[in-house]
């Protein structure tokens, strides 16, 4: 699979008069772990819902693995919705049996090996598992489908730091083994910083910036200077955010050619600059 795993053109979704997403253009390459980052209510769950085929767009088009999301795509896409929905009354082993029954390509050996490695008791009911164990079980079931694309909505938001690390480490092992593409959302970039090589920043129903993490890090710098005086910026530079203190000013700039002497920016600061800009420029409500 070499084409993009997800493309969107003018994609939008409204719930009644509320605009959840609008004007979304995206190309997510295959083989990446893509972080979908943005504040609560930015439209992350809606975008994942559209990608999984659970929701239908109200404008524009979305393509997943080269086709419109829908029943035909289901075996190729693994989707774990927010709060890792499981059947509380069913045991760990029941979940694997259910997965095998519902998915033609289900790899029971893979899921069982994972469950054993984690020390989960197959007879335990899902309702009695810890948050971290539930997330791990959901991951094992989703990965055992052997999908080409895994979608996770806020997989680590409810987990403590150790469970987060364990979950992400399991996910990375699956990626190393299966070569699966992944899109996972979070409202905290720090959760995803280590694992993502592609990033989509969503705020106010729109994509604020998207691209390969290495490219984004290379193209963005912070320039600090005397208040209001930054000297000449390169012609291709775009100011993302400027902050003026009493004596110094600081700007986050996107400059594909780089800015000599400027300070590098961490991924978290980069995301915050775009989110800050989005807050200053709220969505104009189309009617």
């Amino acid at each position: 699979m070499t084409g993009p795993v997800l493309t969107a053109r003018g994609l939008g979704k409204r719930y009644g008069r509320r605009v959840a997403l609008t004007g979304i253009d995206l190309d997510v390459p295959a083989g990446r772990i893509t972080g979908l980052v943005g504040p609560n209510g930015a439209g992350k769950s809606t975008l994942l819902g559209l990608a999984s085929g659970i929701l239908a767009p109200t404008e524009g088009a979305i393509t997943v693995l080269g086709a419109r999301p829908g029943p035909a795509q289901l075996p190729r896409v693994g989707f774990v919705a927010q709060d890792t929905p499981l059947y509380a009354g069913l045991t760990v082993a029941d979940h694997l049996r259910l997965g095998a029954r519902l998915n033609p390509r289900f790899d029971t050996a893979l899921a069982t090996a994972r469950i054993t490695a984690l020390g989960l008791d197959p007879r335990q009911r899902a309702g009695r598992l810890s948050g971290g164990q539930r997330a791990q079980l959901a991951l094992a079931v989703a990965a055992a489908k052997r999908p080409e694309l895994l979608l996770f909505d806020e997989p680590v938001a409810a987990l403590d730091p150790l469970a987060r690390r364990t979950f992400l480490s399991s996910l990375m092992e699956f990626v190393a083994d299966l070569g699966v593409s992944v899109i996972l959302s979070s409202h905290l970039i720090a959760d995803l910083e280590r694992v993502c090589d592609h990033l989509i920043v969503l705020a106010n129903a729109r994509v604020q910036v998207a691209g390969e993490v290495d490219d984004l890090l290379e193209q963005h710098v912070r320039i600090v200077g005397d208040r209001g005086d930054f000297g000449a910026l390169p012609a291709d530079a775009e100011v993302i955010q400027a902050e003026h203190g009493t004596r110094q000013s600081s700007m986050v700039v996107r400059a594909p050619g780089g800015v000599p002497g400027a300070e590098r920016l961490g991924l978290e600061d980069l995301v915050l600059a775009y989110l800050g800009r989005a807050t200053d420029r709220p969505l104009e409500v189309a009617r």
């Binding site: 083989g31 990446r32 772990i33 480490s169 990375m172 092992e173 990626v175 190393a176 280590r194 694992v195």
Partner: peptide, 10 residues
């Protein structure tokens, strides 16, 4: 990857 929880591509 398992020890550091980082992307295999890295």
């Amino acid at each position: 990857v398992a020890r550091l929880a980082i992307n295999p591509n890295t």
